[in-house]
Design a protein around this nucleic acid. Structure first.
Length: 327
DNA sequence: AATTCGAGCAACCGCTCGACT
DNA sequence: AAGTCGAGCGGTTGCTCGAAT
C-alpha cells in the first residue's frame, strides 16, 4: 500500500522559510509548546506541512541551538560517536545538546569525512600502507556504518543485557562525555577548518535579529495578538501547554548585552524546552534511550574513559581516525 | 566583469517506529 | 492481530555564495 504524502494540502509552500513564517511558528509554539505538529499548519495558517514546521523548529528556531564552528572537543565527540553509533545522527546529537542532528550530519558530510579521509590517506602514505587505501576510500565513501550497524543489531540482546547492568555507569559516562565538552568555549575553532562562509554564527545571529525586529514590531504594533508577550513571560497554566519561553526578550536585546547564543543557551538551561522531545534531557536520555543507544552507552563510557588523555595527545588522533574509518 | 565551479547548508523526501484503536 | 496516524530519522537535493578562471 502506498502511503499518501504527508502534505495533502494542494498549495503547500516549499523552500526557505521567511522571517514572517518563523514568527508565526515561534509565536504558535510559544503558546502551545512544541509537538502536535499536525495541527500547527492548520492552526497557524502556515502553508507548510507539519514536517516542515517541526524541522524548522528543531533545526533552527528552537532555543539552545549553538551554531557556528564546531570546537575540537565537539569534533572528537562526533568522530567517536559516529564510529560507535554509525550515522545515527539523532543519537549523536543527543550527546551534543546544543547541536542539531542536521547540523552534525552536515558537518560530518562536509568536513569530518573529508578530514578523516585526508588524514587517513596521509597515514597510509606515511606507513606505506597503500594497498588498503583503495578499499578504505571506498568504505569511507560508502555508508561506513554498515558493519557496525549489523553488528549492533546482531548483538542487540547483549547490548540490552549490558545496559541493564550498567545503567549507572552509563549515566556516569554521559556525565563524563558532557564534561568532555565543557571547555569547548576555551578552545579556538580549528584554523584549518574551511568554514568558508564564516556565517554560521553571524548569519544565524542576523537572522534571529531580523526575527527579533519583526517580533518587536509585531508584538508592539499588534495588541490584538492576545497574550503573546504576557504568555511568553509567564508559566503555562493550561494543561495543554507544555510551557513557554520568553522568545521576545530573548531575541530583542542581543546587540550589546550578550550574544543570541548566550541567551539561547541560558534559555535552554532554564526553559521548559529542556524537556523538548527532540532534545531530551541527558539524564533522561540515559534512562530512556532506545535499546541500541543504551547498548552503546557502555562502549561510549569505556571509550570516553579511555579518552581522558586522548584529547591532549596527537598520536592518539590516529587511533581516532582508524576507528572512524574502519567499519 | 562575467562565468564556472565547488563547498556548505537548509530543507525535502521517503521510510521506520511507536502509540493508539 | 491488524490497520492507521503522527512523529522522528537519515539520505539526498537544490539553492546560495565565495573562489577561481
Amino acid at each position: 500500500m502506498v502511503r499518501p504524502p504527508c502534505c495533502e494540502k494542494i498549495q503547500v509552500k516549499k523552500g526557505p522559510w521567511t522571517p514572517e513564517e518563523d514568527i508565526i511558528l515561534v509565536s504558535y509554539i510559544q503558546q502551545h509548546g512544541p509537538g502536535n505538529w499536525r495541527s500547527v499548519p492548520a492552526n497557524t495558517g502556515l502553508l507548510r506541512c507539519s514536517k516542515s514546521c517541526r524541522l524548522r523548529w528543531t533545526n533552527y528556531l528552537r532555543p539552545g541551538i549553538k551554531r557556528g564552528n564546531f570546537t575540537q572537543p565537539e569534533e572528537k565527540m562526533i568522530i567517536h560517536l559516529q564510529a560507535l553509533l554509525g550515522n545515527r545522527w539523532a543519537a549523536i546529537a543527543s550527546y551534543l545538546p546544543q547541536r542539531t542532528d542536521n547540523d552534525i550530519k552536515n558537518y560530518w558530510n562536509t568536513h569530518l569525512k573529508k578530514k578523516l579521509l585526508t588524514m587517513k590517506l596521509q597515514n597510509g602514505i606515511i606507513n606505506g600502507d597503500k594497498t588498503n587505501m583503495a578499499t578504505e576510500i571506498s568504505s569511507c565513501n560508502n555508508n561506513n556504518n554498515g558493519c557496525n550497524h549489523n553488528k549492533r543489531i546482531d548483538n542487540k540482546g547483549q547490548w540490552e543485557k549490558k545496559l541493564q547492568t550498567d545503567i549507572n555507569m552509563a549515566k556516569q559516562a554521559l556525565f563524563q562525555a558532557l564534561s568532555f565538552d565543557q571547555p569547548s568555549s576555551l578552545i579556538p575553532p580549528d584554523p584549518d577548518s574551511p568554514n568558508r562562509h564564516h556565517h554560521s554564527t553571524t548569519t544565524y545571529a542576523s537572522s534571529t535579529d531580523n526575527i527579533s525586529k519583526l517580533l518587536q514590531n509585531w508584538t508592539s504594533s499588534s495588541t490584538s495578538r492576545p497574550n503573546t508577550s504576557s504568555v511568553s513571560k509567564t508559566r503555562s497554566s493550561s494543561p495543554g501547554e507544555r510551557g513557554v519561553f520568553d522568545h521576545h526578550s530573548l531575541f530583542s536585546s542581543n546587540s550589546e548585552s550578550g550574544s543570541v547564543d548566550e541567551k539561547l543557551n541560558l534559555m535552554s538551561e532554564t526553559s521548559i524546552f529542556k524537556g523538548d522531545q527532540s532534545k531530551p534531557n541527558i539524564d533522561m536520555e540515559a534512562t530512556t534511550t532506545t535499546t541500541d543507544d543504551q547498548g552503546s552507552l557502555s562502549l561510549i563510557e569505556k571509550w570516553l574513559f579511555d579518552d581522558q588523555g586522548l584529547a591532549q595527545c596527537d598520536d592518539n588522533q590516529e587511533d581516532l581516525i582508524n576507528v572512524s574509518l574502519e567499519g
